[in-house]
Write a protein that binds this DNA or RNA. Sequence first.
DNA 1: GTCTATATACAGATAGAC
DNA 2: GTCTATCTGTATATAGAC
Lengths: 212, 212
Amino acid sequence: MNEDSHHQAEEVRAAREKILAAAARLFAERGYESTSLAEVARAAKVSKALIFWHFDNKQQLYLSALKKNLEPYHIDREELTGLDAPHQIARLIDSFYEFVNDNVYSVRFFMTLMLRGELPSEESAASTGSTSLQRVNELYRAFRQSFAEIITVGQQQAVFNPSLDPEREAALILVTLVGVLAQQFMLGESPDCSKALIDHYKLVLFQRLRCS
Amino acid sequence: MNEDSHHQAEEVRAAREKILAAAARLFAERGYESTSLAEVARAAKVSKALIFWHFDNKQQLYLSALKKNLEPYHIDREELTGLDAPHQIARLIDSFYEFVNDNVYSVRFFMTLMLRGELPSEESAASTGSTSLQRVNELYRAFRQSFAEIITVGQQQAVFNPSLDPEREAALILVTLVGVLAQQFMLGESPDCSKALIDHYKLVLFQRLRCS
DNA sequence: GTCTATATACAGATAGAC
DNA sequence: GTCTATCTGTATATAGAC
């Protein structure tokens, strides 16, 4: 690949990426149905027709935008090494909360999506559509599993109450975190308000988990 | 008012109500944008034009449907009388859960609505649109307030730990309930799964609230 | 009040020049 | 690759008969 073709390829990507970025933002903000391709074109500063050159149709653009929104989703287990069980719990709670507030738009987006199965059509589910939601789902369960594992380890190290069921407790932790998040988004509360709730919850949780 | 005019009035209401019922269901199921008046007309078994005779436009129909969905929303404080504080808490949790599962469609509907400020336009917010969401909001706070009051009474009766802040605890209870609900809706879990979580949570909560 | 028929606007998608 | 111009379907909304 020479300089020219490379440069050309970059140019191609630039337009495609501009469309994708605009679409990702607009779909996340306003949803699939109420976002027109004319708006996406305007936001990306390209013509409507160009969208159809880069993407087969609206659905495919939507699915590509979904993937783009999903990119930053992952669990960073590295940052937990070297911490004791209680601090691992605290760290995992914090990183959940931080992640959510770093990705408000797309988190809100996926929440809406999951709330009703808002997918552009049924065929897309068969192809690539539901895969994105599946990934969110997996991530959620991975998070829960992490909590359960930390609790188990904590019990083995005799810092957590051995009579607790780690899976049950992990499920309850996730439910609370999701609740804080949902409340922040739905009641339009400030992140500060959620932060205070989370901090209080951490205290409550540790009182429950620790050996008594 | 004679028999005839009464009967006529009933007939009028029948059509209007049929439209309203169909609209309430369809808007709740599929949202504002992706529900066409043609579908509403078909579901209500009337002509499209009749919708415009009864309602000024799509937005106004939507707002009227919102109100209809809101009707069953209220707190029944009567059913708490005669119970002690712990049972009042348990009863309030149960009635929250029961209410949600009796009104899945509209609860899901309002959750989506609150998640993004999905209102048909901005003018509607100024007129009557946001009032519906405001009412949901008030109801939510009323529920939280009820929990706080019960906790306070429980503390006065020396059945609940006096060192707890009732407001804080009530906030955490609501967050958890919302979390269970959000999880059920978003992860598509069965009501049974939520029921189990709620039951477990009640145990956890009572361990925390009671005098130690 | 309820209908059929129609006006008007805008959506997604295509054709073809450059 | 990117554009302008255009096709086609469908949405909201209206007109007017009954």
